[in-house]
Design a binder for these strands. Sequence first.
DNA 1: AAGGATGTCAACCGCCCGACT
DNA 2: AAGTCGGGCGGTTGACATCCT
Length: 231
Amino acid sequence: MRKPCCEKQDTNKGAWSKQEDDKLIDYIRKHGEGCWRTLPQAAGLLRCGKSCRLRWINYLRPDLKRGNFAEDEEDLIIKLHALLGNKWSLIAGRLPGRTDNEVKNYWNSHLRRKLMNMGIDPNNHRPTNTALLLRPHNHPPQMLKTRAGTFNHEPVEIESKSPRGDDQNNCEQVSDGRSCLEDDSSCGGHLLPDLNLDLTVHLSCKEPTHHFHLTNKSEIFDSSTTLPLFR
DNA sequence: AAGGATGTCAACCGCCCGACT
DNA sequence: AAGTCGGGCGGTTGACATCCT
């Protein structure tokens, strides 16, 4: 049987020193990524393999962008979070040079508060109860202001057809003024396990319109390339 | 100027899943 | 088939920076 990842009492923890960074960079340049378990010893580091992997992926990789998030990156994170939830690695995968940790931190420190200030629940991207109370029936949806400008905060344009052919997303507004956007277990139209969605994400600038196809296996394909984007 | 409050972000922890034995 | 491990992930922590009173 295999040995455990590392002997914890023999490893450093906490912030990385310049020397440790240099050793890790040097080793990966010569030998490439992989086999994180044996890397620390081979590279002469008193670190857990996981710690090395994290340091490399989140900080030392040469293709990292770092610095402030651009307007279109910010918008894309919000859109993708509305679509995927806290799947930070998937979201980061669509942002070249960004890591899941970076996206997660940016979401928690900036974007969450931004949405809350706008009366949008960052967990489900729907108006908060207060906002709903103030919002009359059939009032236009929230406008999301970003540094890139203002756009409709509809998480994604979703056309939903169930395999049976009936429209799962066609909910009736209830009579007391709430909309079916609220969490409501009586509404069977959302988040069904067998959804087969065509998703269109429009970015406000430069980026062309992308068409995503989400299968019932939680895979998303770019229709222009047919390559899987998320899995 | 001091120190408490709040924000930021690198790093760790623990869990999960697929590969391997 | 069952147990173990490595890699990957999301959540959380804690040190440091900045802001506020």
